[in-house]
Structures are given as structure tokens and as C-alpha cells.
Design a protein around this nucleic acid. Structure first.
Lengths: 328, 328
DNA sequence: CTGAAAGCGCTTACAG
DNA sequence: CTGAAAGCGCTTACAG
């Protein structure tokens, strides 16, 4: 079965391919009688005609794809939410989302040169020359960094701020000796390092001693081992900032296993506000990240980047927020 | 900056575009001196030439894209894992993953007609005529259903089996009065209904009375309200099968809030084995879904579907599995 | 108001 | 062994 082309529609409706193209693309400036237009539209619908994306792309030099580069580490619910928003909002503009998992730098250049996407959204930072090359090829680039960045088209989730907020909250509750629970997964190192840096900074600012760092796996024995370490020192840790809620739950479980009470003996604060956080015993205090707002911001940024001379949308304010519960 | 084409490479290396194409595509059957080959390859590398995907697609009528249709409900970690596997494994064959979020049936036909993907992977079931039309257009179709299906290219995660396993486990522990904790989200209804059906079936098979169903939100008050209902009847529920681990955690928290003990007063079993499950107090018994195996199965199925006359890979056995912990 | 023609970049019969 | 030419399906100046 050969592909249905605009020539078929032209034949079916008794006009030329030119007219078909004009009608179907709503080309203005051309005056075509409504009767002809209707005939063409009917024929297209009757035949079930869909223009070839490849031919269009070849002709225009620009595809209807938006390349979304996701890192090889798991950013958990963010990715779900983001793909959800992006895919829905771009569909309204006739654009589709092409997902590329970043694995080593080379394949990226090949991919974008091959598909000439309209825009590229990076969830992990781009190499500077990659970004420049893409821009030179007329591709709109929306990037991400883990922290502040000058470029208005680069989205920053201030990771260090997360750590600062955690310590700020714990200090408000009167804690002076802070521990940090780090994740095991190396792919999270970039995040964990930034968040820890924030914790360290804030401790310093408040005149507290540097946090005692323990790597905590997502199981009870690991949490218990960390708990023992934190309590062993002559000046024991009384509050733990965890990389995220899952790590925090492991700490909570470890403390419990060691017979320590939360928050009386050791307070715990996580990051993310996953559903399990509010259901934990005690309910987990955490830093809420406004994933939804971030995802729609990124989708909006991509949309804005597509249009010339449109400014990037305003960064969502209040992206980070401590949700105080019983664990602190 | 105009696009770099094979003509540029031809000029640079002093041969025709034909030769460039032969060399770069490793066309066999043609004898081209190694010296020429090398010259062409060098020129291509020096220039940074990448063939236009659009032109190739137009010429061959077949793109290098694999369309992945994801449902509008959240299937949580599955999607992350799947996109991860798919994207990595397909990249090795030079294929890219195009994600489409299913929202109403129409856009799908337009999308696949426009991009002519090599294969389509549906994480939600396809309408029968959609599937047929795609196959007729030469597109390989790998589908999914919520339960058993005769078609070897359709992947089934036996949802009813999940419910059966839950009850089987609870009955083994001596429970005779079962409750079911359903999620609130309507988008999960298709899943929840199947799992509940499995629970109902197994209750019947074992001669137990039908489960008492409560909708449970992911918060403590909702879990507590459900707990009260379950315990109010003259013949109170002693074990609850929950839709998934998050709902199970809400039930656990609700029971705790009502002063009921788990598993002594009420046992609880979830589904998924999320990290928080083993960290709960008491540690949550759950049905493990082997997400990873399922994701690589799907990736393998897509890969197999691309080649003519290759059978679908063997379904992963042991996809479901009760992980017994302290909550039952 | 409508159509014939060119050209986007590629691959592949088909000639030399 | 290598090249000139056609054609994939589309859009858009350019003629009528």
C-alpha cells in the first residue's frame, strides 16, 4: 500500500497539489473560494491524508520535533511529570517530543544534526560547544544547571539552597550538631554534592561545626549503622539532613532500630515530599520541590524559545519550601 | 549556515555523492578501493557531516524512530525504567525514541502517519483498528494489555494475578476477612479494577466473603477513616490488600492513628516494593513486580519486532512475587 | 484564482 | 570502479 500523498488529495478533489497545500495549511494571502477549500478538506478527510513529516522537514529544514535530553541518573518523578507536561503542551503546537538519554557526549551531536529538532531541552547541563553548535544551526536551546546560571534560557534548581533550607530549619528547632545522609548511587553525586555544599555553607554561616556525613543505603541496617556513627561521637548529632525522602526514611528506620526516638533524640529532614513522607512514623519533615511548577515552567520555556523575540517565562518563585511535620 | 550535505563531502574528497553514500553506508557488493574509502571517511569526519534523517526517511519511506505511546495515567517508576532501557538499547541500532502521551484516540493516527516510525510500542492498549492500520502501513506493533492476551506481540502484566497473590498470602497467614484499599485517582481505575477482581476471585475460590472495599487517599485521616470502617462491622476485617505500596502505607498510618496494631490487629500487603516499603514500621509485605525485567523485556520485544521472522522474546517468568515482611 | 516546476538531501538503479 | 539522473512528498516562488 503506497503512501497517500497530496497528489492523491489533489486528484480526488480536482485541483493541483499547490492548491491542496494552500488549503490544508491555511495559507493566507491567497484567495481560494470556500467551495474549493471545502472540496479539498473533504477529500483529505475522506482519504485519511496526513502529510509526510519527512518531506516537510526536508523542505523546510526544520522538523516538528523537540529533543528532550534526559540524564542517565534517575531524577525520579520529575521526568514523568516533565514528559507529561511537555508532551501535552507541545502537542497543541503540533510538536512531538523525542527523548534522548544522555550517555557519553558524542551521540548527542549526531542526533540533533540528523533530526534538526526545533528545540532542545536539556535536563542535564550541555557542554558549552554542543550548545553553541546547536544554536548556530538555528535550534532553540533550553538548558538546565544544578545551580544559578546567568543565561535566562538556562533553568536552575538551586540545589545548594535545598541544603541551606534544611539546616536553617533544623537550627530554628535548636539543633547545633548536624549530620548529613548521603545516597549511595554515584549517578546522584552531582546532586548530592551540591546539596551537601548547601548544608556545609549554612552550618558555617550559623557558626555550627561541619556536618558529619554518612552514606546511607535504602535499607534498615544501613540506616542503623549511620545512626550509631552519628551518636557515637562525644558531641552526638541531634539532627540529620538527608539527601532525599527515601534516604530520610532509611535514617528514620535506622534510628528506630537503634532505639532512638525521632525527633527527641535525633530529628530528620528529607527532600521531595513523596507520598510516603507524610505517612511515615513520625511524619517526615521535608523540603518540597514544586515539581509540577518546575515541569510546567520548563514546558513553557521551550514553548517561548520557539518564538522569536519572546522572553523566557518568569522563573517560578517559591519552588522550595520546608514542609514541617513531626520528625523535626 | 547551510546544512552540510553529502555533496560537500563528495567535493571535499573528490568523488561523487554516489561514492560517498556507498562508503558511508558500508554498501557491500560494490568494490571501492580502500584509499578512496578512507578519503571519504576522513572528509566526512573533518567536516562533521551527519546525514539528514528527513531525507533518508523520505527516500526510504521508513524513519529511524520508534514511537512509544504512554498512557495519561502515571505508571510511576515503570515509565522511567522503560524509557531508560528502550532508549539505550535502541540507540545501539541507530533508533531514537519518540514519546507520545495518549490523550484521546485521534492524535495517534496522525502522529504515526506523519512520522512513519519503524515500530510502535504501546504501554496502554491500542484500539484494534489503530493497530491494524499501523501494521498495514508496515509498522511493527508491540502492544500491552492489563491481562492475558493471545497475541504474542502483546505484553500482559497479569493484574488480576496480583490481587490473587495478595489474598493467597493473607489466607496462608490465616486471615478470613479481607479488606481492599482502592486508590482515589480515576486514571488508575483500569488497574485497580483488575487487581480488585483478582482479590475477589481468590476470596471466592477460598470460600471467603467478598472483600470490603474502601477508597483510601494518600494521607493519614483517609487511612484512619478506612480503618474505622473495616473494624466497625460485626465480623471485622483482619487483613487489607492495598492497590499499591503507597496506598498500603496510608492504611498502615491510618491503623496506627486508630491505635490498631499491624499485623496483630490488621495485616497489610501492598504492591510494587518501593524503597519506602521496607523502611516502614512495620516493614511492608508487598508484591514485587520485577519492573526492570519487564522493561528490558519490552525493549527486547521492540528490537525483535524490527527484524522479520524473529519470534518475540520469552516472557519473563517470575514477574510477580510476594515479598513477605513484618506487616503480615 | 490555479498550476507547472524547482528543490530540500538522500539512495540506488543504471550507464559508462 | 565511478558518476549522472531520478524520485521520495512537500511547499513556494513564479507564471499564467
Amino acid at each position: 500500500m503506497p503512501r497517500l500523498t497530496s497528489a492523491d488529495v489533489a486528484r480526488e478533489s480536482g485541483v493541483s497539489r499547490t492548491t491542496v497545500s494552500y488549503v490544508l495549511n491555511g495559507k493566507d494571502g491567497v484567495t481560494i473560494p470556500e467551495s474549493t477549500r471545502q472540496r479539498v478538506r473533504d477529500a483529505a478527510a475522506r482519504l485519511g491524508y496526513t502529510p509526510s513529516a519527512a518531506a516537510r522537514t526536508l523542505r523546510s529544514g526544520r522538523s516538528d520535533l523537540v529533543l528532550c535530553v534526559v540524564p542517565d541518573w534517575t531524577i525520579g518523578p520529575v521526568i514523568d511529570t516533565l514528559i507529561d507536561h511537555l508532551t501535552t503542551q507541545l502537542a497543541e503546537r503540533g510538536l512531538s517530543v523525542l527523548v534522548h538519554q544522555a550517555r557519553g557526549p558524542r551521540p548527542l551531536a549526531e542526533l540533533w544534526r540528523a533530526v534538526t529538532p526545533r528545540a532542545v531541552l536539556g535536563l542535564s547541563p550541555f557542554a558549552e560547544d554542543d550548545a553553541r553548535a546547536m544554536r548556530q544551526a538555528g535550534i532553540r536551546v533550553v538548558g538546565s544547571t544544578l545551580d544559578e546560571d546567568a543565561d535566562p534560557w538556562t533553568f536552575a534548581v538551586p540545589q545548594t539552597r535545598i541544603g541551606q533550607l534544611q539546616v536553617e530549619h533544623l537550627a530554628e528547632r535548636g539543633h547545633r550538631v548536624i549530620g548529613y545522609a548521603s545516597p549511595r548511587d554515584d549517578r546522584l553525586a552531582a546532586f548530592a554534592d551540591r546539596r551537601l555544599a548547601g548544608v556545609v555553607q549554612e552550618c558555617e554561616r550559623l557558626g555550627l561545626r561541619p556536618p558529619s556525613v554518612q552514606v546511607v543505603d535504602l535499607d534498615v541496617p544501613s540506616g542503623a549503622a549511620a545512626a550509631r556513627e552519628w551518636r557515637a561521637s562525644p558531641d552526638p548529632v541531634t539532627a540529620v539532613a538527608a539527601y532525599n525522602d527515601e534516604v530520610a526514611l532509611a535514617v528514620l528506620a535506622g534510628l528506630r532500630a537503634e532505639g532512638l526516638r525521632t525527633p527527641d533524640d535525633v530529628a530528620v529532614i528529607g527532600v521531595d515530599d513523596i507520598p510516603a513522607a507524610r505517612l511515615a512514623a513520625p511524619a517526615l519533615t521535608t523540603v518540597w520541590q514544586a515539581i509540577d511548577a518546575q515541569a510546567s515552567y520548563l514546558a513553557a520555556a521551550v514553548l517561548a524559545a520557539l518564538d522569536d523575540g519572546v522572553d523566557p517565562p518568569a522563573l517560578p518563585s517559591d519552588v522550595l519550601h520546608v514542609v514541617a511535620r513531626d520528625s523535626t
